[in-house]
Design a protein around this nucleic acid. Structure first.
Lengths: 251, 251
DNA sequence: ATATGTGAAAAGTTTCACAGCA
DNA sequence: TGCTGTGAAACTTTTCACATAT
């Protein structure tokens, strides 16, 4: 069983040494940042900016310049020394690496509050991810269009996903339904799953799961609140008096 | 400016050597997993399970046993060799470490589709995170209760957040509004932000930002689809013929 | 006998610092 | 001169393997 990513976890793709692919291997962490660079670059392109330095781009993306350059080096050498990067060039190379040159048909399962929100994004953030199928168990919802797509019954998941060539399944069901929905998606050939249900999904190794877990995010923030409080409490003891931040509330 | 976490990124808390805190330092990645263990353990407790081994718990949490034990070792030694862990004991220690012994008042800004979904979670996944304030700019929404809380105008953000002692701000606005909303939250003393807007927020060092970025998640999945396709294409060439997976569609 | 807790090794990621090129 | 691209160093996280406790 493969384990799912998200929240700072790292790959455990087990087996598969990927031998000579080593050269082409892009660190998992870098992939996530490339997606961010892509958005920043797209925004710049829209504003007519056509060249950018690693310093500028890294600022806008919230990382440091060395990391940005290292990340970009994984996809090739597309900058000009002494000058910087051409925005359009970078955009197209990142799109290629991320596989955004083809469309990825998306199915959303569970048309509750969140499912509605997701379905209504329509085409999904950044496009290239058309939502082509919606599923629920609630009889009152079946056939009703949400964001332009009529809701299908969850029992038709296999047939509909195969027919519409769904490549990404989004699970927005209540927790108890999530594993069963996941199994059905997998048996419909879906190999990528984005899971919003607070459940650890068990999937075969060839399926990639990413999770978005509100409770976990909140708890991580809670941890930092607590840590901050601890630091504030002990700051008067062991500090050199220079960096008493952490209590500064209004900038 | 501090940079925000999420999607596999790692801390860059800059400065702050944290000297003698080294002993108490829990790796960022481990914190995220502790939250997952907590949920699994709570589920077990609800089902009347009261003891668990690292092997069982790690299975249920989707990690390996060694990692689980290492993670738990960061918070102390609460297991019994030759036996395992007491579920209740582990739950209470993880809750303590994550700062869940106190409530964290939450404000949601941007009551669109997503904001509605978030507000309606009511109490927020796993409780301990009561939603106490909602904000929007839309005059039609002001005063309307969503999930039991009336929507306030975004201009009142500072006053309301201070009054209700909001410690976590959730940004669910359209991208152009996000930075300005963030600035206002920060000036109301909010030090933890969960950002759903596809924007890189600039915040002072004492503010912790986590982001949930749909577009990035989809693009990471897209990358893996592409990588899989590449592997499948080149698998016939350099392989020993044993591990031709990646094409297995129905298990 | 069995399962934890943990040093030490391995793997992965970030930062440094500078050679190399426009 | 100025900024990219990248080896090598520093740091973090994961995995291993076994001493240790019950």
């Amino acid at each position: 069983m493969a384990s799912q990513r998200g929240e700072g976890e790292t790959t455990t793709t087990a087996a598969e040494p990927a031998d000579r692919d080593r050269a082409r291997a892009i660190p998992e962490a870098a992939v996530a940042r490339l997606a961010v660079y892509l958005r920043v670059l797209s925004g710049m392109a829209d504003q007519g900016v056509n060249a950018v330095s690693s310093e500028e781009l890294s600022q806008a993306a919230g990382v440091n310049a060395a990391k940005l350059r290292k990340d970009l080096s994984y996809i090739g050498s597309y900058g000009t020394r002494g000058v910087g990067y051409d925005v359009e060039v970078l955009v197209s190379h990142i799109e290629r690496i991320l596989g955004l040159t083809r469309n990825h048909s998306v199915a959303v399962v569970g048309i509750g509050n969140l499912g509605h929100a997701l379905a209504n994004y329509g085409g999904f953030p950044g496009r290239g991810f058309p939502v082509t199928a919606l599923f629920d168990v609630d009889a009152d919802l079946i056939g009703i269009p949400v964001g332009g797509i009529p809701v299908s019954h969850i029992d038709d998941i296999t047939a509909v996903c195969l027919e519409r060539e769904v490549s990404i399944g989004v699970i927005a069901t209540p927790p108890p339904a999530a594993q069963s929905v996941c199994d059905r998606l997998v048996s419909a050939g879906v190999q990528c799953i984005l899971n919003f249900a607070p459940v650890v999904l068990q999937v075969p190794d060839n399926v990639e799961v990413r999770k978005v877990d509100l409770a976990v995010e909140m708890q991580i923030l809670s941890f930092h609140v607590a840590r901050r409080a601890d630091e504030a409490a002990s700051v008067s003891v062991g500090n050199n008096g220079l960096g008493v931040d952490g209590m500064v509330i209004r900038p």
